[in-house]
């Protein structure tokens, strides 16, 4: 039966070893030869998919080393094989998979790893996100003074926000260097991260907590005045500080359009 043949072939490629019973489906002079020939396909599949993960997650790979990364990636491919033939869509589950493995194996010195992985996944998402024009700040000068408070901003598709209990941006940046230096993880350094794309280059920006909160409000469809009021209350920000923050944000590739809430 062709259906069973394809299911078993697929299962054999995802398994670490060949199921001897399946070798009867292959026409070769010996089982050993059939198994070796089958292993060519298995190696192609495993190598290409672990390479896909290595391309998305270079920092994770650097942090844990090639061998452990290979083990993690192979285990992830076997547990979560792709449901799509588009490799750019594959790999989203890796951060969560890493977290599960760390927990299962009681590895407690890599707690930051899932968040570093998540930061890399969001860069991948940003890289492939839809193209839209950045908001023309000049257009805001056309807005009636009365309407300014009621502005609602739309985020560009390539924009992502991420919060972490670890200094993920510092860890990521340090590991872009040829000789990364150790980072002190003993102090609590929560990170508030903005991922955006300028032309085709993804940018990772560490935000002040109030700035992150402000953006989160705006992306959640708060009007400009609602968002500013909340941030002023929560962080004791002055109007001037808020205006400066807004001006700075408007210079980044974050917003696509605005509308005026009625």
């Amino acid at each position: 039966m062709l259906e069973q043949f394809q299911q078993q072939f697929k299962n054999n490629l995802l398994a670490p070893e060949t199921d001897q019973a399946f070798l009867a489906q292959i026409n070769e002079i010996s089982d050993q030869q059939a198994a070796q020939r089958l292993s060519i396909y298995r190696n192609n599949v495993m190598n290409s998919l672990t390479e896909v993960l290595a391309d998305i997650y270079p920092t994770v790979k650097r942090l844990v080393g090639d061998d452990f990364f290979q083990q993690l990636a192979r285990a992830c491919v076997r547990t979560h094989p792709p449901q799509t033939a588009v490799v750019a869509h594959y790999g989203e589950m890796f951060p969560e998979f890493i977290a599960d493995i760390l927990q299962q194996q009681a590895i407690d010195n890599l707690d930051y790893l899932p968040d570093v992985a998540q930061l890399e996944w969001l860069q991948q998402c940003s890289y492939y996100a839809a193209d839209e024009n950045q908001l023309d700040v000049q257009a805001l000068t056309q807005v009636q003074a009365d309407d300014l408070d009621n502005l609602v901003f739309q985020a560009l598709p390539a924009v992502y926000l991420m919060r972490s209990h670890w200094p993920v941006v510092a860890i990521w940046q340090e590991n872009l260097k040829a000789e990364p230096q150790p980072i002190d993880l003993t102090q609590t350094q929560h990170d508030h991260v903005l991922i955006c794309r300028r032309e085709f280059a993804v940018e990772v920006i560490s935000l002040a907590p109030e700035c992150y909160d402000f953006l989160e409000q705006l992306f959640d469809s708060a009007t400009l005045s609602q968002a500013m009021m909340k941030i002023a209350e929560r962080y004791n920000c002055t109007d001037q500080a808020l205006s400066e923050m807004l001006a700075w944000l408007l210079g980044l590739p974050i917003f696509s359009t605005y509308s005026v809430a009625s």
Partner: peptide
């Protein structure tokens, strides 16, 4: 060739009878 079975897509070109 084929590379999809039970909703899983394998990243290779697989042989058929």
């Amino acid at each position: 060739t084929w590379n999809r079975s039970e909703g899983i897509s394998l990243n290779d070109l697989l042989p058929t009878p």
